[in-house]
Design a protein around this nucleic acid. Structure first.
Ligand code: MG
Length: 253
DNA sequence: GCGACAG
DNA sequence: ATCTTGTCGC
């Protein structure tokens, strides 16, 4: 919590941030205050904490898929847990809350992380990796939703987006699993992956605590019948259904 | 100033 | 993201 210092002059007040306030609290506060200037500062600050050299997600057991849905000022979130050994969804969690931050390209984490975390913090276990519907490293300041969340939670994360935010790339060949590199400012920031023939490719980028190669490999391994990884497809469907059920109940009141 | 622009 | 029925193509 901020420390408010009331000075002798009543109209002068300085708000100091406790040096122990962690970045998670900082992020949630910035979102609530809709402070885009502070949001950009945090992104530039946390950028140095990104780690993509980790090699601990070679064979993950539990994988989480996250997605949100909206209706006016209400946000709905679904977390789907995929058992990568049983090859099936083993748990589904839903929650809802008020939208705290508007959608601004480049600042999606401040809109979606708060509502996601509200549900995530209630869980009593941690998955081996979390996949988000959006970019990770493939961000103007390398701080997409997946990366931001991966830093705050200190857990391996991957960004799985349906369209580009930044960067240039060659359109991948029109065949299953064809992919190309996504570049930005002279560095690779992710991959453009065509999961099926004749479908629009998706954008994969590491979030945090995972390498580029492992991110791409895991996403490809999660391909089933749909364009999106099975866990992301399920998260999307689940969240949409959850929202509809809620709205249905509301309408008959 | 203009165009791009995750969900 | 959301608004929405039928329709074209692999
Ligand atoms: Mg989404």
């Amino acid at each position: 919590m901020p420390i408010s210092l009331a000075f002798p002059l009543p109209h002068i007040q300085i708000v100091l941030y406790n040096r122990f306030m962690n970045y998670l609290e900082e992020t949630l506060k910035i979102a609530k205050n809709r402070d885009t200037k502070a949001a950009k500062k945090v992104q530039m600050l946390l950028r140095d904490k990104i780690s993509l050299n980790d090699n601990t997600v070679i064979n993950p057991h539990f994988i989480m898929g996250v997605d949100l849905a909206y209706d006016k000022d209400m946000a709905f979130v679904s977390i789907v847990l995929w058992d990568n050994i049983k090859e099936e969804i083993v748990s589904v969690f839903n929650d809802k809350g008020k939208v705290v931050f508007p959608y601004i390209p480049g600042f999606l984490s401040f809109r979606e992380f708060p509502i996601f975390y509200q549900l995530y913090e209630k869980l009593t276990f941690e998955p081996d990796v979390i996949i988000f519907d959006g970019h990770g490293y493939a961000h103007p300041r390398r701080m997409g939703l997946a990366t931001h969340a991966g830093i705050l939670l200190d857990i391996p994360t991957i960004g799985c987006a349906k369209s580009k935010l930044v960067g240039t790339y060659d359109v991948p060949e029109n065949e299953e699993n064809a992919y190309s590199e996504l570049h930005h400012k002279n560095e690779i920031i992710g991959y453009v992956l065509r999961t099926r023939k004749n479908v629009k490719p998706i954008f994969i980028s590491p979030g945090n605590h995972i390498s580029f190669g492992q991110s791409l490999k895991l996403i490809i391994s999660l391909k089933r019948k749909t364009k999106l990884p099975v866990v992301m497809q399920m998260a999307h469907r689940t969240c949409e259904a959850y929202k509809r059920s809620f709205l249905a109940i509301e309408r008959r009141k």
